[in-house]
Design a protein around this nucleic acid. Structure first.
Length: 343
RNA sequence: GCAGGAAUGGCGGAGUGGUCAAACGCGGCAGACUGUAAAUCUGUUCCCUUCGGGGUACAUUGGUUCAAAUCCAAUUUCCUGCA
């Protein structure tokens, strides 16, 4: 896939947060049919750090990935690590300052430093820093989050253009994140303001499902309806196979979720042979089941190994099991995407 | 043979008179996970149950006590010294 065609067709990007899709080599990742991946600005800022990743020629060279790379801005990590008090830090109008919980080093993430970091990583598609917050947000907090998100997006774009020459000079794309929690008018407002600034892509940010796991479809629709139709739409964090099919119908073309790889490592595999598409291979019923995980799947795992073998790998805590499971789940998602593109 | 010590649920191992169906860990069973501090976390794990309870249980047998996994005696097995 060419970068200019990104988001024209459906695309699923596995998360390689720290520079690897967990449990897979880059070759194994390619073999699943994956064309684009996501790495994380904040995590790579801490390790190996901006200067080091620059010296190493960027993460694509580092991990020998020749597909498309999107870098998440770190907005979500600021939320999940600082807002939730897992890390010490504060979020303010200029960004976030925080302390590494392992080394104690102090970091600052601002709209500008986020762009610098994403350039150092050598990302193809950058994401503006956003102010991501909890799902159930009070009105005033949501308003503040939207205000900051717009402000930071503006600063990101200006910095990207002033310092790096923008898309024209770099050939890279810049996407923004639409916030607004569950307030439809705020989603609309945020989408309109960001559209006014102008980006190559519009990402639905915040939480995509409620506590009950139901998609926030109205909010997602509000963003689609108020952003340019010729730019890509990325539903960040979506999602389960069924969720992707639904959200695809709304107009989103780009997806990512940690579920596919995390579930794989937890023994939750996807299979068309199951009514709910889910096969928990660790369960006792698969001890002697010699069928493939999915009878319709063309992945390396399904072509060569049985449910019983995967079951055994998990039972004896053998790392190869994580790899085989991840290969399968990723291939399952790529097949799902292929089907959407052919429909 | 003598002297000490120990025997607890599938396993390891707490508990040393009542609050013990018994901590904790492992193993087993199931579930969760949606811009990854996640090869993680949660629930459950003697039997029966109308989920209120009920029944058996801490090597075995007997005893003391209102009450015993916990105290006493004998038996069995194991460990450590001395022969």
């Amino acid at each position: 896939m060419e970068l200019k065609d990104f988001g024209k067709n459906f695309v699923f990007m596995p998360d390689a947060t720290k520079g690897a899709v967990r449990a897979l080599t880059t070759q194994q990742l390619k073999d699943t049919g994956t064309e684009a991946i996501v790495t994380n600005t904040l995590h790579l800022m801490i390790n190996p750090g901006k200067e080091n990743i620059e010296k190493l020629g960027g993460i694509k060279k580092f991990m020998n990935w020749d597909g498309i790379l999107l870098t998440d801005s770190g907005g979500f990590q600021v939320f999940s690590l600082i807002h939730s008090k897992k890390w010490k830090g504060t979020v303010h109008d200029n960004g976030a300052t925080f302390k590494s919980p392992t080394t104690g080093d102090l970091y600052e993430l601002t709209p500008e430093s986020s762009i610098d970091m994403q350039m150092a990583i050598d990302s193809d598609i950058l994401v503006t820093l956003d102010d991501c917050r909890d799902a159930k947000l009070g009105r005033s907090d949501a308003e503040e989050s939207v205000k900051r998100t717009i402000e930071w997006a503006k600063r990101c774009k200006k910095y990207f253009e002033d310092v790096y020459g923008g898309t024209k000079e770099t050939g890279k794309l810049l996407s923004c994140v639409v916030q607004g929690a569950n307030y439809l008018d705020l989603r609309k407002h945020c989408a309109e303001e960001l559209s006014q600034i102008g980006f190559d892509g519009y990402n639905f940010g915040g939480f995509v499902v409620t506590e009950n796991g139901e998609l926030v479809l109205e909010e997602m629709r509000a963003v689609i309806e108020n952003t340019p139709s010729d730019k890509f739409k990325y539903a960040m964090g979506v999602g389960k196979p069924g969720d992707i099919r639904i959200v695809a119908g709304l107009g989103y073309r780009v997806f990512d979720t940690v579920l596919v790889t995390r579930n794989a490592r937890h023994g939750t595999l996807y299979s068309k042979d199951m009514d709910d598409e889910v096969l928990r291979v660790k369960n006792a019923e698969y001890l002697l089941d010699e069928r493939a995980i999915d009878s319709t799947c063309d992945c390396y795992t399904c072509k060569n190994f049985s449910r019983a073998y995967l079951h055994h790998m998990f039972r004896v805590n053998e790392m190869t099991g994580l790899t085989l499971a991840t290969i399968h789940n990723l291939r399952y998602y790529q097949n799902l995407i292929d089907k959407l593109n052919k429909a």
